[in-house]
Design a protein around this nucleic acid. Structure first.
Lengths: 301, 301
DNA sequence: TATAATTTTATACTCGTAGTCCAAAAAGAA
DNA sequence: TTCTTTTTGGACTACGAGTATAAAATTATA
């Protein structure tokens, strides 16, 4: 995204924070960011799209900062989790994200609603996965419910604390209180063995970026062919290992490390055998396709 | 409100349910309800005001039905509470109240926002008072927090159940699940002795409809005068009792029963004494004013 | 540097909707 | 009947989103 467009984005965001989305007219944005109408519609196809862009940017920043807090920390440390939540709330407040998001939710625009929904669900999924870190795989069955309830209570606790204490609301206190409830609820609900929504549902809400069965099949087939076409040389073992590693990294890792896979591919030597060469080319193409798809998904959803 | 105006209200509500508020134009409403523009603006000063009227009506109906469920039942019976919640959710769904309310929340219109806020808080207060019925005065300190959290979890549990199970969501199941969490949380939170927002805050959010100190003073003064001007007859005692009853009912009861007070007033006989008569007239006026004020408050807020 | 391609500007224009105004018609009441 | 109130319907205003476009400015290229 070019610098000028980003400048417009920032200026518009400022206006949205000050006046709200609806109350900000295109004209306001043009004047405030010093561009012409033509340019505006060159950058964004509509006012709604601009709002989505603003939200996307804020969310991306927020997710990055929040995930950075985990670096070098134990994922099961609840204090780290609390820090992450506090950060989110503070950024939300700063960027008026909540209000903007809510304007997304209740417009007639399909795209906006869609985007909002996806954002919510991504948030829930993040909570769910963090809860697995915090409370253990064995509680898994109940953790989607807990994520949903945590979200709801946190939002309302914060909202009404704001109402009660105005701008003096102590975010840390609200988070602490809500997290205290959470840990009890997690125990209680798994004790009672009650489930409302099965965690697998997440998959249907937000199809995973993991490759589908056809990808798995093709990958496995290619790797097997390559292994078979290896000559009985001393290279055989190392090449087999490399191939196995690539397959594993692609299938079993949550976020396959691209640089690793590509350097591993480079280590697969040329053998002169046409079958080997052909399979190798196909494997390369398959992997490239895979990463293209991943990138697309990241951008669109 | 005249019949024709109500007809417009109903028709508009139907359109709002079908297409949403924003997407329904004034023109749509005019055609669908068969009135002219002039008449419309004669009834409602704006589209927003119409929406508020629609919501007000729905909320009033809902509150009435919900409170009727308590008649002849024990307020501490949690099954009755569950029935009340289920009823609310079903009516919400039928009338698309949630969506309409949310359109209220995120408009630029001050009045709409105000109305929405008040509705939310009234709901929380109702929950809070029901929780006192259910869990006892001794838990009071924590019950506002619990009301807020209950609201949040219920809303989100329902929302995501709808997402997961489409239209097949079993409202009863969601309510049961959420109430089960509630009773545990109430115990847990009072055990831990943690409070986020003090229940007194409710008073500042939604000033009570109880009469102010000046009303109390005037009432007490009039009653005392009346008692004093009573002649020493055998009627004296019963008349004094009647007067005391009226004063108590007005001051100490949460919702003074109008019919009771009025029939009691009627039982206060005419004595011929001008001071007595004068005071009696003033008392009548005071009581009438009181009920007028109550009615006004019910309508406006 | 000259020329071609592109991006940007400024402005006029369309379109749709909320809300106002008002004179004439219709309906009700005296 | 006559006076009053309500209703009608259409013209009109205001405003904001989005389109169209020709001219100007900028950037790339030969």
């Amino acid at each position: 995204m070019n610098e000028r467009k980003q400048h417009v984005l920032r200026k518009a965001h400022q206006l949205f924070i000050e006046k709200g989305f609806q109350a900000t007219s295109i004209q306001d944005i043009l004047e405030y960011s010093g561009i012409s109408k033509g340019t505006f519609y060159n950058y964004f196809s509509s006012k709604n799209e601009l709002l989505i862009a603003v939200c996307k940017k804020s969310v991306a920043d927020l997710e990055k900062m929040r995930d950075d807090l985990l670096i070098g920390q134990s994922p099961s440390d609840i204090e780290v989790f609390i820090k992450q939540i506090e950060l989110q709330l503070k950024l939300n407040r700063k960027n008026n994200l909540i209000t903007l998001f809510e304007e997304l939710m209740f417009s007639d625009d399909k795209d906006m609603k869609q985007f909002f929904k996806k954002g919510q669900i991504k948030n829930i999924r993040w909570l769910y996965q963090r809860f697995i870190d915090l409370f253990g795989e064995e509680k898994k069955l109940f953790l989607l419910d807990c994520a949903i309830m945590f979200m709801g209570t946190l939002r309302d606790n914060l909202r009404y604390s704001n109402l009660a204490y105005q701008s003096n609301t102590n975010i840390a206190e609200v988070v602490r209180y809500t997290v205290n409830r959470l840990v009890k609820i997690v125990d209680e609900v798994s004790e009672a063995n009650e489930q409302l929504i099965a965690p697998e549902t997440l998959e249907t809400w937000l199809p995973s970026k993991k490759p589908g069965p056809s990808f798995k099949k093709e990958l496995h087939h290619l790797v097997a062919s390559l292994k078979n076409s290896l000559p009985g040389t001393d290279q055989q073992e190392s090449q087999t290992e490399l191939l196995s590693f690539i397959e594993e990294e692609l299938l079993d890792s949550k976020n396959p490390r691209r640089f690793l896979i590509e350097s591993t591919m480079a280590a697969l030597t040329s053998l002169g055998d046409p079958i080997w060469e052909n399979n190798l080319r196909q494997l390369k193409r398959l992997i490239a396709d895979y990463f293209i798809k991943i990138e697309e998904m990241k951008e669109n959803g």
